[in-house]
Computed example of a mutant assay.
Amino acid sequence: MPKAKKPKWWIYHILVGGFAILMLYPVIWLLMSSFKPSDTIFVTAQSLIPDPFILSNFAQGWEGIGGNSFGVFIKNTVVLVIITMIGQVISSAVIAFGFARLSFFGKSFWFALMMVTLMLPYEVVMIPQYIIFSKLGWLDSIKPIAVPAYFGHPFFIFLLVQFIRTIPRELDEAATIDGCGTFKIFYKIILPLIRPALATVSIFSFYWTWDNLLGPVLYLNSPDKYTVSMALNMFLSNETVSNWGAMFAMSIVTLIPVFVIFFLFQRHVVEGISTSGLKG
């Protein structure tokens, strides 16, 4: 490396390293706090390093709430994530294929209408949806959260539409000459080529469902059906002393799958998003 560029190189890495530490500090503080007694976590003079260093927060947090261990909440969340993720990926891919490749009456209007729904806050449709699901008898179950996932997600549809448009139509025409119908073109040609975008959709669906609190709070009433986000919220109390140590400990446990998924599939996220804006 030329000597003239060395100072710039060091300045760049110092700045990037400083910003990385700044961004990671809340996670580091959360991790260190999970090993502290609850009554010392928010003491101003308390250092970042736990003193004393305890592991009882993890044991207390894993005991759970209402006679259900934290493993029950993790199991409930995993089931909900898998069901929702499958529904959003499949339905969004099918709808995106229709918008990107098929011609039908009012196609532009329906696509624009779908995009408008991205601007609607969830609070706008929350009450109507709750009334509908209440009349269907779906309350206190995961149906109100999982079933809508099988009707597509606007953001995922838009992402996949942009990705499919990068695929040359000549491949569809060649498949049609070979005798492939619409479904076979989708299954044999389009799906294998949009794997990066499907991976991106799957990861985002996992993150958003795993962290979702408002949906489970609205529709789940039985403690044995709670998700991890609800369980973490139950460690806080307005009437008694909040068990911050146990909550932070279980927060670390629930962050493990998020970090694992990110580091394993971050390449697919970048590839899926970066190529979705291209147009072939």
Score class of each variant (00 low, 15 high):
Val79Ala: 07
Pro128Glu: 08
Leu198His: 02
Leu31Cys: 09
Gln46Asn: 04
Met119Ser: 09
Pro121Arg: 09
Thr77Ser: 15
Asp224Leu: 11
Leu278His: 12
Val81Ser: 09
Ala112Asn: 10
Leu22Ala: 15
Leu198Ile: 01
Ile41Trp: 12
Ile177Met: 01
Val81Gln: 05
Ala149Ile: 04
Thr84Phe: 11
Phe105Thr: 04
Phe186Asn: 03
Ala149Arg: 00
Leu24Lys: 03
Phe265Leu: 07
Thr275Leu: 13
Gly67Lys: 14
Lys6Ser: 10
Ile194Gly: 08
Gly272Trp: 02
Ala199Tyr: 08
Lys8Gly: 04
Ile252Ala: 11
Leu139Trp: 00
Ser205Lys: 03
Ile189Gly: 11
Phe235Cys: 06
Phe133Thr: 09
Pro128Gly: 14
Leu171Gln: 15
Ile256Ser: 09
Ile145Leu: 15
Gly272Cys: 05
Ser108Cys: 10
Thr182Ser: 11
Pro50Glu: 08
Ile49Tyr: 02
Ile90Ser: 08
Leu236Ala: 10
Gly272Lys: 01
Gly61Leu: 06
Pro196Leu: 02
Ile28Phe: 15
Phe163Met: 12
Phe151Lys: 03
Ala96Val: 14
Ser276Phe: 02
Phe206Arg: 01
Leu139Asp: 01
Thr209Gln: 01
Asp51Pro: 00
Phe151Ser: 03
Leu278Gly: 08
Val125Cys: 04
Ile131Val: 12
Ser108Ile: 05
Lys8Ser: 09
Val78Asn: 01
Gly98His: 00
Phe58Arg: 01
His13Glu: 03
Pro37Cys: 08
Met126Trp: 02
Val270Lys: 11
Leu214Pro: 00
Val241Ser: 07
Leu30Gln: 13
Ala199Arg: 03
Pro7Gly: 13
Ile95Leu: 13
Phe99Glu: 05
Gln88Leu: 12
Phe73Ser: 03
Trp10Gly: 01
Gly181Cys: 06
